[in-house]
Amino acid sequence: MPPANAVEIRGLTKRYRLPWKRKVLVALSPLDLDIRAGEVFGLLGPNGCGKSTTMKLLLGLIKPTAGEARIFGEKVPSLQSRRRMGFLPENPYFYKFLNGDETLRFYGKLSGLGGKALDKRIDELIHLVGLENGRDRPLSAYSKGMLQRIGLAQALLHDPDLLLLDEPTAGVDPMGSRDIRDMILRLRGMGKTVIFSSHLLEQVEEVADRVAIFHLGIKLMEGTLDELLIDRDRTQITAAGLPSDAAGRARTEEALRSQGATSVEFTSSRRSLESLFMDVIAKRKAEARAEDARVAAAATEANSRTSAGDTK
């Protein structure tokens, strides 16, 4: 029977000796954390709070000062545990002299894939992350978003059960960022466990099942979003078509008070900037498409007219 927890961290600590300061920096205070299999877990906190440190410890890129961690019951660091992990580092860079296809082939070989299986897997992943246009281009010509995509594809190559994504949306435009969020949700749908870190909170809400908030190397709190965010005493009602004049509001308030509400507040509903942005872009894209279609139609018409003229 597989262990219920994907990740078990017990007292994991990382300190750095800074000899010239004759001081010790606590990058991560003793940390206990369990992450269940199949959940999307967010590590939140400002820069320098120890998010990357935690991930690097799990991967064995750095050695813990104390404590230990297990991945699916496998002690880290170990080859076995890394077989089940995929990692997308913060601001990933790859070999610039390779193209997208060669990059994935290289990482595939490192992950123990080869032959037909690797070819098939690369096709799948290129399609999954939407990098068809980057296959034959060298990575030196990639945009930030494309690098993030190839990074994600690379992390997924050996079909790991646990994904570690370090700041996956940092520096990516909102469209790309949305794509990455969709990808995380899709991965959850495939039964993967995902740990991602971010210092931008709004994105976390939409995808994370549970989050932990870190500050200066210390885990401050941990829990599901509902646990952390829902204020059980207050209910927000979003309604369309209510009267917005004073008399109308008074009537509504009365109705609510009759249901036991002790205080009632009125605000116009406000959408997030992001959703506005996405709408505007979508609208503009639709317009552009319509415009293209119109221009194309006009061109064909003009063409047919001139060709008709030529034949005369």
């Binding site: 890129l61 080859l79 990692f87 580092p89 990482y107 992950s111 050996h158």
Partner: peptide, 14 residues
């Protein structure tokens, strides 16, 4: 410097 080492050693590579 290019951080390629992180992706390489995060794979099952000794």
């Amino acid at each position: 410097e290019n951080r390629t080492i992180y992706t390489i050693l995060a794979k099952p590579v000794r």
